[in-house]
Design a protein around this nucleic acid. Structure first.
Lengths: 141, 141
DNA sequence: CTTGGTGCAAAGGGTTTGCAACTTA
DNA sequence: TAAGTTGCAAACCCTTTGCACCAAG
């Protein structure tokens, strides 16, 4: 995992203790974390609400993106430079993979969602592809 | 929408009033419904819990399948014959489309999820593709 | 009679909101 | 000082569970 120095102030976010810790957590994992994961893994105890608000502000500033976990579930992952490339605001056309065994949800940054030809008159704005199965690590056992 | 006579007893489900109404609702819509949609659209008032249990039994009998709504959201739609084809239990490799304008989530039965080549040692069991945008009806305006 | 379905109440989990206190630019 | 951030409490979903009652095979 690349640990390039992401700075909160670059995203118009005050570098508060909670934000720095949450950012650190997200940077130190190469898979997506749920709100609960984050809340429990923080070394300092921050209020649950603060974590929610932290994630919300990260989202609105484009620092992280939502990741489909299972059907119905949500996790969060850092946006890579790829997300910020291109003219349009944000690109998240990569595939998300959830491992049924270890439960980890990873962004397959290099696997892109193929373009789908939709029926007549349907226009696409965004797409999310979640693949469930067994990940590389669990398959090695 | 095809109204072919789906029989609850074919799915080992007793044809109770609640189940018949819920099935009727699902049959009369060509888009997926959430638990709340169903609860509110039932002509007779059934307990919320009963609707939940009805959906759960429909799911376990393979009469309906879960549909990704937004990220984090769940709706339900009838399984078509396509689902029951093939050797394996169930196939839901079609694309789901959520319209940002009318809010309807439809099963694009004919649009299949393309096979994705995963990185080394990843094995796929299931996949879900949700496309958000504007549907054919809303685009005609 | 025995199984399964329903309703009601309650509990549980996740998320949001209001407000007062605090921090910091 | 003014704006942004936090903690606490409470409110809101949405969903599940326990239990007693009812209905149907």
């Amino acid at each position: 995992m690349e640990h390039k120095a992401l700075s909160l102030s670059d995203f118009d976010l005050r570098p508060t203790p909670c934000r720095m810790e949450v950012l650190g957590l997200l940077q130190s994992h190469d898979y997506a974390l749920s709100q609960g994961d984050i809340e429990h893994q923080l070394s300092s105890q921050f209020d649950r609400v603060t974590v929610y608000r932290t994630l919300k502000s990260f989202l609105s500033q484009g620092l992280i993106h939502k990741v489909l976990d299972d059907i119905g579930g949500i996790k969060y992952a850092l946006c890579k430079e790829l997300c910020h490339q291109g003219g349009h605001a944000h690109q998240h056309d990569h595939v998300h993979f959830k491992c049924d065994q270890c439960g980890q949800t990873t962004c397959l940054e290099l696997v892109h969602i193929p373009s789908i030809s939709l029926p007549e008159n349907f226009t696409k704005k965004e797409s999310n592809l979640l693949i469930q199965g067994v990940c590389n690590l669990c398959n090695q056992v």
